[in-house]
């Protein structure tokens, strides 16, 4: 038999041709599928980036491990291990946060970061931070941009906005609008802390006097107001006011200023002309004795020295 070989040869080519056709169809289908998947991945990646822009998290250390675990990218790691390691890190960080809060005198409740722009050399983020200092609540929003310049990077704050109730804090309000305009974020917090501390000092002092001399001292505007009034129950016409102003300069310098104001009946002034000089006399007392002792001596005078 000599004829089958050439036939087989031809036939093999034919079969190979068919196979090629089949294969190339497979290849085409697969290639199309790959193309589709790639497009899908690009879309998903875009979606992921958008989500990160809305709220930026940093996945490093134990956080990265936890993320990999949740996304099923790590085989063989036990959930308990991932949990306990993350928990340990959380506890450590919590202690650090407590220390910062105590030392800085500022309690932070929330900090949400959005990424507005990110490239190799520049990153712009939008931050919204809220919290409270003493009882005063605040919310600040600003853009933080970090730009690489040679070996170092330059960080700047812009578009600073501060929301805080300043109804009873006129001088602070003026300072605050300047700080906003100049993007003085750090100055704002330094001043806020000092300012509120002084206000708390004033409040404590007023309360102390009210407790010690309840019949003479009253706080018409509450203990957080600037005024403490002194009057003797048997001398209703005569009232003295201690006006204690906590002032903030445009530059953020906090100063306390105390004045004595009087409401003395005309008749009394005629009888005791020396009473008209009380305000000036109080300033000398302040200089010599300091605020607390000066106020104490005024109270002593007005309560006719009976119960002092």
């Amino acid at each position: 038999m000599c004829f089958p070989f050439p036939v087989v040869g031809v036939s093999c080519k034919r079969i190979a041709g068919n196979m090629n056709k089949e294969n190339s169809e497979d290849v085409k289908v697969l290639e199309a599928q790959i193309e589709r998947l790639r497009e899908e991945l690009v879309e998903l990646e875009r979606q992921k980036q958008n989500n990160y822009k809305d709220m930026t998290f940093s996945f490093t250390g134990e956080m990265q491990n936890a993320l990999s675990f949740v996304c099923g990218q790590t085989q063989g790691r036990r959930k308990e291990v991932v949990m306990s390691q993350l928990e340990e890190e959380v506890n450590k960080m919590e202690e650090g946060l407590r220390r910062q809060t105590q030392m800085n005198g500022i309690n932070l409740d929330s900090c949400i970061t959005k990424t507005l722009q990110r490239s190799e050399n520049k990153c712009i983020q939008q931050l919204c931070i809220s919290g409270h200092c003493s009882e005063q609540e605040f919310q600040v929003e600003f853009q933080l941009s970090e730009e690489k310049q040679g070996d170092s990077s330059v960080r700047t704050v812009s578009d600073l906005n501060i929301v805080m109730d300043t109804t009873d804090h006129q001088s602070f309000k003026n300072f605050m609008s300047g700080a906003k305009e100049n993007n003085d974020l750090l100055l704002f917090f330094r001043t806020l802390r000092t300012y509120l501390e002084r206000c708390n000092d004033r409040c404590r002092t007023f309360q102390h006097f009210q407790k010690k001399y309840p019949s003479v001292v009253s706080l018409p505007g509450g203990c957080r107001s600037e005024v403490m009034s002194l009057s003797h129950p048997q001398l209703p016409g005569l009232v003295m006011f201690i006006h204690w102003l906590v002032d903030v300069s445009k530059e953020g310098k906090v100063t306390s200023k105390m004045d004595l104001l009087t409401k003395i009946p005309e008749r009394a002034l005629q009888l005791f002309p020396s009473l008209s000089g009380t305000t000036e006399a109080f300033q000398s007392l302040l200089r010599i004795l300091g605020p607390e002792a000066a106020v104490e001596s005024v109270i002593g005078a007005i309560s006719l020295s009976e119960d002092t």
């Binding site: 960080m93 910062q100 974020l185 330094r190």
Partner: peptide, 22 residues
């Protein structure tokens, strides 16, 4: 726990940004 982790981490970062003593 992850949410708490990121929350605390961001607050510490915020303290730093606001000029905290660190």
């Amino acid at each position: 726990l992850m949410a708490k982790h990121s929350h605390i981490k961001d607050l510490i970062y915020a303290h730093h940004l606001l000029g905290g003593y660190n």
